[in-house]
Design a protein around this nucleic acid. Structure first.
Length: 127
DNA sequence: TCCTTACCTG
DNA sequence: CAGGTAAGGA
């Protein structure tokens, strides 16, 4: 009740930030992986790419982020995942991946689509 | 100069 | 996932 809580708070907050950061990495790594696979499989247009709750991509992400299906993944997540997938597709199609920092342009677009952290996390993950 | 974040490693 | 850090922003 005195000084410790503050340290805990600060510590846990940074841990959560790190946690989400790792999630973000996982997210992008897998979307790129699936995207390249789609291309290898012959998908020719970004419009042919979609992400639904039945998609393998979704399953992979959900398996990692929401293993026990403790949350109902908002449809917005699917939309953003699809946008991200198409963003990667277009970039790779244009051979932009030749540039060492080609992903930054994508990150810049996607981060603007970030949703706020749901209240459940703020109120549930406490000490 | 402090804080955040992307990148890499274990 | 956590730790460490170089790089960039305020």
């Amino acid at each position: 009740m005195s000084s410790l809580p503050h340290q805990f708070n600060r510590c846990i907050t940074s841990q959560l930030i790190k946690w989400f950061s790792n999630f973000r990495e996982f997210y992008y790594i897998h979307i790129e992986k699936f995207c390249r696979q789609f291309i290898a499989d012959g998908v020719s247009s970004a419009s042919d790419l979609s992400v639904t709750r039945d998609s393998e991509l979704f399953r992979a992400l959900n398996m990692h982020f929401n293993k026990g299906n403790d949350f109902q993944v908002p449809s917005r997540f699917l939309e953003v995942a699809e946008i991200t997938l198409r963003e990667f597709f277009n970039a790779i199609s244009l051979a932009k991946d030749l540039d060492p920092s080609w992903k930054k342009a994508i990150y810049k677009v996607i981060c603007k689509l970030d949703s706020d952290v749901p209240e459940v996390f703020k109120s549930t993950i406490c000490w």
